[in-house]
Design a protein around this nucleic acid. Sequence first.
DNA 1: CGAACATTTGAAGCGCGTCAAAGCCGGTGG
DNA 2: CCACCGGCTTTGACGCGCTTCAAATGTTCG
Lengths: 270, 270
Amino acid sequence: MFAPYGKRIAGTATEPAADIWLTRQLRHFAPLSPEDHAAIRSAVAGPVRSVQARRDLAREGDRPRCASLIVSGWGCRYKTLVDGRRQIVGFLLPGDLVDLNPGLPTRLDHSVGALTALRYAEVSNEAVARLMAERPVVAGALWRQMLASVSILREWAVNLGQRRAPERLGHLFCELHLRLQAIGLASAGGYDFPLTQSDLADATGLSPVHVNRILQQLRGAGLIRLSGQTLEFPDPAALRIESLFASDYLQLLYNDEGERLDGREAGSDL
Amino acid sequence: MFAPYGKRIAGTATEPAADIWLTRQLRHFAPLSPEDHAAIRSAVAGPVRSVQARRDLAREGDRPRCASLIVSGWGCRYKTLVDGRRQIVGFLLPGDLVDLNPGLPTRLDHSVGALTALRYAEVSNEAVARLMAERPVVAGALWRQMLASVSILREWAVNLGQRRAPERLGHLFCELHLRLQAIGLASAGGYDFPLTQSDLADATGLSPVHVNRILQQLRGAGLIRLSGQTLEFPDPAALRIESLFASDYLQLLYNDEGERLDGREAGSDL
DNA sequence: CGAACATTTGAAGCGCGTCAAAGCCGGTGG
DNA sequence: CCACCGGCTTTGACGCGCTTCAAATGTTCG
């Protein structure tokens, strides 16, 4: 995570358009009309950049000029202490918006890095403002998405403060599972998992060695299967219980097929 | 932290008005005009409620009808695990706004509790919306205040994940010091400290016993003086260094006398 | 094939948790 | 005014979870 910033690249015509990831996320936070979809599409029509794995999208102290929408790959927000210790404070997945603030020139208090090769679309503050002004339903969805991201951060703090190592890792796996399912990047039984054990250590506040041992323990207990880039859950419900995972804080509603996540009935609430 | 909610009480004429705490905070996030002050005052003219120490203002799952502005006393946001473990994820001080969202009926993902006897003003969503629409400078300040609170939460996660016990406690003391100084409730050398060692344990993810031992260690090192309800810092700079404390994330500008906090020169930035 | 990096394993030690009991208050009531 | 009580703080002993250091093995890619 040393070299900075992304390179502008020529548009590639074959991959899914940048806006669909945002749409898939916002669907969870408000019922979107076709007009909403169209408005989102035109708002995120900006240039797509790409960064290599282990590079930064932005650094602590930067003043981002615009928001970035993750299009493919995994990123993270992290902070580094003066003595080099590093804490990842959240993962960024496709459809996540980074640095969405209403055009205020604020200094970043943390860095944003790419964990894998990553592609992101730049969304100007004006485009966001216009979108929110013209499509109140989308505005509400963006608000809720932001509140949900803060909620995830609070749960992250609980994870670091109260759970022991096996629960911590399991909880992280569950969070990623539901978030990826929500955008159609995970099946009911697992997902593609590009993180190294060092990444997991930085995210959970554990040492890499201990992460390794706990992973073996979880494997031995039949709670996860992790080999290469694939993470599978033989018994997702058991893992959630073991990890003290309660999914409510994510405020997600459906999986990619429009089915209710987490086996609950559609509630009366929104 | 068991009995719920506050009681409406008769207005007391003698204490400082509810709005000045909000004004003192927002001053850090934008230069406020006399008209802005007046608008803030009329927006927070709602009823003032009060709760006893150890009671809740709101519970996980609630749908707050309006925002609450802390007027006096200390509160906290916290989450509880199914097995009873509790994590405090942030302290609430006078001038802090709880549950500020643009009228969206969202479920709370965490509880809000009073750590001391506490007084808070209810601020309706309409009043907030009107304030933000009519006073753009105030709107910007409220935005920045919210971003700062998220920033504090990220640093909280770093504290829990990366710092060891003495640094963790020291960092917490430093955060509270600057935040209290910003609203004129702390001097350069210390402040009134109403928390129990159990509260500190819940906030730092340590056991109460260990908190006790580390406090003695910090006392022995001459970094803090803590007796009764008073916390003092014989050498604030040393404590900040020992705790790996970097104040930037708080995004505060001035102390109560309008002097620059943290000994830095006024920058060109906002 | 070899370099760079990720994973795995072992051994030793410390930080912090747990359990248990003893002091130290401030508040309440007789 | 003092006796009593409950909550907070302090102390000691013990053990476990996790870190650290070090080295071996596996894996990916130029």
